[in-house]
Design a protein around this nucleic acid. Structure first.
Lengths: 152, 152
DNA sequence: GTGTCATCATTGATACATCAATCAGATTTG
DNA sequence: CAAATCTGATTGATGTATCAATGATGACAC
């Protein structure tokens, strides 16, 4: 792992491009599948997942953003679209009048339930089934290295 | 690689999430760096790269789209934005009056030149430097498996 | 208690991706 | 050649991501 001496090699660039292209294509397929199965976008699903894991299926929007590691503005726009479609509701917060509570609606919970199993199946089909256990371990190790490097 | 029997495991899901999150973060950083160095977005860079590799720094827009594996509509919107900023020009095609030729402008070529080396350096810094040669080989192998699986 | 500052959340602007629709000009077919 | 069809490219609509700006409230110093 000779750092910073050599320049980026053609092979390294190729692997980078492959990584980007392949993950793009995987996401694209999962996104199409998710929309077919549940009418949800990946962003919708992500929000509903976080919300359905929350205490009482509700959460302060800043807390939600923090857990999801999303910008608040991003979440706010997303919630606006989801509220229009009835997937969530926004209520005033009792303890801080600046704050908003995001509440999972019945429709939101239904859509999420409808999405979950097929989504897991699609991840298995398109991603997990492609790799051997050894490749899996190797990938986990690689991701750990990348994450550590990013946080350094 | 027992296909289709077991359900997606928690570990597999975790690796999938890690893959998505880590590649997202990598892209985000490269995108910020690219913008700082050259004022270009990744989409701009991709178009300029394809165009600068083309015969005479010009190409029919459908040919460009094909090489880049982009939807024509996507390219058309992107070219519209880039034309406004003077990075490319569009000219009528001599041999097919429906067609358009996309031409790399001087400004476009400059921006691309300004972007290239720092971009490679950033890929090296954030990505390539994080991995050992063995991890690199493993990743290449994993990507090949994933691509083969997607094309099956 | 009032002024200053931080925080919660939203909004608007811009760029981008995707889809469906459009339109002009080429090509094919009878 | 005329009608039907296909193709190259653009456009508009919608959803999404990011950034800067805003407004309202809370917290703290004095």
């Amino acid at each position: 792992m000779v750092v910073g001496r050599r320049r980026l090699s053609v092979g390294e660039l190729g692997v980078w491009r492959g990584l980007v292209d392949t993950t793009d294509e995987l996401r694209r397929r999962l996104s199409v599948q998710l929309a077919e199965d549940s009418g949800l976008s990946p962003a919708d699903y992500r929000v509903l997942l976080a919300l359905s894991e929350a205490e009482g299926k509700r959460s302060r929007s800043s807390r939600l953003a923090e857990q999801m590691e999303w910008e608040r503005s991003r979440l706010s726009h997303q919630l606006g679209r989801m509220e229009k479609r009835g997937l969530i509701r926004r209520e005033d917060c009792a303890t801080d009048s600046r704050g908003a509570e995001v509440v999972l609606s019945e429709e939101g919970a239904d859509a999420f339930r409808r999405a979950t199993a097929p989504h897991a199946k699609a991840i298995k089909k398109h991603f997990a089934d492609a790799l051997t256990p050894a490749q899996f371990d190797a990938l986990e190790d690689i991701l750990q290295s990348l994450e550590r490097h990013l946080r350094r």
